[in-house]
Write a protein that binds this DNA or RNA. Structure first.
Lengths: 206, 206
DNA sequence: TGTACATCAGTGAACGCGCGTTCACTGATGTAC
DNA sequence: TGTACATCAGTGAACGCGCGTTCACTGATGTAC
C-alpha cells in the first residue's frame, strides 16, 4: 500500500469495499453514499470523481459480485467434471458458500433494488452466472429419459429458487429468525431429495 | 362509509392500507410515514394518534399479513384433508397465491426488515403460520418409512425455501428479471419433484 | 330539545437531521524542457 | 538536476429536499343535565 496522502491511490476500489461492508452490516437500506465516503476516509464529493452517483456505486459492487460469482460457479462446475452429478452438486455448494462468504456482494446483487439491466456490463455478467447453473442442470438432465425430462431452464430455476430461499430465510443472522438446521445441510439435503425425485440419484442413498 | 369530515372515522386501518399500497408500488424502501399519511389524506402528525411511529405502522401491516396468511394456509390445509398429500399440496399453492394476491403484505412480512420478535403479537401469529406448514409436512412424512424420514422441520424448511425463492426470483415483476415459466408452474413442479424424491408420490406421475 | 362541556382525532408549523449532489477551490503528482 | 506548468483527485462549503417526530392548537363528536 503506497503512502496515504492527499491523493488516495485507489479510492475507487476502496469505495466499493467500504460500500460492501456497510451493506453487509446494515442491509441494503442502510447504505448511503455519504457514509460510504466517510468510511473510506474521504469527502462525499470525492465519490463523484469515480462514480456517477449513488446508484452507480452499488451497481459496481453488484457487478464485481457477479464476476466473482461466475468464477466460483465455473470453478465448482469444472471441479466436478466429468461427472455431471458431481459438477452439479458442487455448483450448489458454491452458491451457498458464495452467499455466506460474500454477503455484501450477495445483497448488492439480489436485494439492493439495482436492476440487472442497468448496464450492458451488468446484464452480461449476470447472464454468464445464470448460464453456468443452467449448463450444469442441462448436463445432468441428459441422464433422465427424454420423455420424463423437465426443461433444463426449469430444473435450474428450481435449484436457484431453493438456494436463494435457503439463503434469505435461514442463512442470515437476522435476529429471531433462528434456523433450525445449518443452511448448508438444509440446502444439501433439499437438493438431494430433489435429485432423487428426478431419478438422478438412487432412492436409498442418504 | 360515514361522511368524511374533520374526523376520519377509521384512520388507523386506512393508514395500514395506504402503507401496503405504497410498499407494493415502491418496495420496502419506498415506504415513508409522511407519504403514507398524505396518501390517506391526513397530516403526518395524525399518524401518531394511532401508531408509535414509522416502525409500528409497518409492523401492524406485517401482523395483518401474518393473520391472513395463517387463515389461507389453514383453510388450504383443511381443504385437502383427510389426504395428507392433498392438504400439503394445497398449502403450497396457497403460499404462492398469497404472495401474488397480497404483495404488500408479503413484502411487509419478509422484506421490510421488521423483526418478527418486535412484539409478542407478531411473534405469536408468525409462529402460527409457520406451524401450519410444519403440521402439513409432519402429516405427510408419516407416510415415509421412519428410518428414511427427514425431520418434519427440515422437510417444511425445504418447501418454505423453495416457495420463498420462487416468489422472490420469479414472481416479482421486477424489470428484466423475466421469468422463464409461470411461477405457479415452477413451484408446483418443483414441489412435485421434491415429493417424488421423498417417495411420497409415484415415480412416473407427472 | 337545547345548552355546556369533556374528549380526543386531526392540524399546521416547526425542529434537527442526514441525504445526494453541485461548485469553485486547492494542493499533490508527474511530465516537459 | 532543477524549474514551470498541466493535470486532476480530493476539499469544504453550500444547496434543497424529504424525512420522522414534537408541540400547542382547534374543531368535531358525543354525553350530562
Amino acid at each position: 500500500m503506497p503512502k496515504r496522502g492527499y491523493h488516495h491511490g485507489n479510492l475507487r476500489q476502496a469505495l466499493v469495499e467500504a460500500a460492501l461492508e456497510l451493506i453487509e452490516a446494515k442491509g441494503p437500506a442502510g447504505f448511503t453514499l455519504s457514509e460510504t465516503a466517510k468510511a473510506a476516509g474521504v469527502t462525499p464529493a470525492a465519490v463523484y470523481r469515480h462514480f456517477d452517483g449513488r446508484e452507480a456505486l452499488i451497481a459496481e459492487a453488484a457487478r464485481q459480485g457477479y464476476e466473482m460469482f461466475c468464477d466460483v460457479m465455473e470453478t465448482a462446475y469444472a471441479s466436478g467434471q466429468p461427472s455431471a452429478l458431481a459438477a452439479f452438486e458442487a455448483t450448489g455448494r458454491a452458491y451457498l458458500a458464495f452467499a455466506r462468504e460474500h454477503p455484501g456482494h450477495y445483497i448488492a446483487m439480489f436485494e439492493s433494488g439495482v436492476s440487472v439491466n442497468r448496464s450492458a456490463d451488468l446484464a452480461a455478467v449476470a447472464g454468464r452466472a445464470w448460464s453456468v447453473l443452467e449448463r450444469a442442470a442441462a448436463d445432468l438432465s441428459e441422464h433422465i429419459p427424454a420423455d420424463r425430462r423437465p426443461p433444463a431452464a426449469m430444473f435450474s430455476a428450481h435449484i436457484w429458487a431453493m438456494s436463494h430461499g435457503v439463503v434469505e430465510l435461514f442463512a442470515r443472522n437476522s435476529p429471531g429468525n433462528k434456523s433450525p438446521f445449518p443452511p448448508e445441510d438444509l440446502l444439501e439435503t433439499g437438493i438431494g431429495v430433489y435429485l432423487r425425485g428426478l431419478g438422478l440419484i438412487p432412492p436409498d442413498r442418504t
